[in-house]
Amino acid sequence: MKTKHVYYLIGGLLLVVFAGFSYTEFQGALTPYVPYDVAREAERTVQVAGGLDKGSSSYDEAQGYLRFTLIEAETSETIQVRYDGVKPANFEDAVSIVAIGRFDAEQNEFAAKQLLVKCPSKYQGLESVETKTYG
């Protein structure tokens, strides 16, 4: 065998191993969009979306959590969400909030790691510019 073929073999093997690693991690890192009832049962990180229940948001100073309630527009289902990051700009005006995290059965609330906030339609022409917080 030529040296070149040996390289291809080793390189190919490494690529396959790395592809396998990336794929497994990829499957694990996927955060599917789910309804609230599925989110309550889910064993993994998921994302839920909904409108902010106006006036439901409060800041828990002792624990440093932002708590609020999301309402599903069609079914009027609700879910309580806590978020331990920095409150995104224009949060209160959000027309829709996406929370990414997992359900905390003990506290009976959804513990969000990340929020995507969609801006209001006050700007009729506005292409929804959103904010989120990341670390």
Binding site: S22, F26, G28, A29, T31, P32, T45
Partner: peptide
Amino acid sequence: VGTSAPLLTRFQENPAQVGPEWYNKVHLP
């Protein structure tokens, strides 16, 4: 692939995305 995750998973049960952790993890090696 990561950016396309919502498209790739579109035909599964629920569309999904991958978070920053995945990108960070695969980029370490």
